[in-house]
C-alpha cells in the first residue's frame, strides 16, 4: 500500500517538475517591477535597481 502511495507521490513530484520546466519557473529569486517608464531607454540612470545597495564581497582568502 505504502509503495503504491509512494509511487503516486513520486509521479506527483515528477509532474511538478515537468510543469515547472514547461512553465519556465526558476529556482533563482528575481524581483519584478511594473510600469517601468519608456524613458529608461533614453535615460538609463533614471532607473534605480532594487539591488544597487548590495554589499559587495571584496574578500579572497
Amino acid at each position: 500500500m505504502f509503495a503504491k502511495l509512494y509511487l503516486l507521490y513520486g509521479f506527483m513530484v515528477l509532474g511538478g517538475i515537468a510543469t515547472a520546466q514547461y512553465r519556465g519557473w526558476s529556482l533563482d529569486r528575481i524581483s519584478q517591477v511594473k510600469n517601468v517608464p519608456r524613458s529608461i531607454r533614453d535615460n538609463p540612470g533614471a532607473y534605480r535597481s532594487i539591488y544597487s545597495s548590495y554589499h559587495h564581497y571584496t574578500g579572497g582568502k
Binding site: 519584478q32 517591477v33 511594473k34 510600469n35 517601468v36 532594487i50 544597487s52 548590495y54 564581497y57
Partner: peptide, 11 residues
C-alpha cells in the same frame, strides 16, 4: 514596462 530586476556578482 514590466521589468525583472536582479543583481549578479562575478568575482
Amino acid at each position: 514596462g514590466r521589468a525583472w530586476d536582479f543583481g549578479r556578482e562575478v568575482s
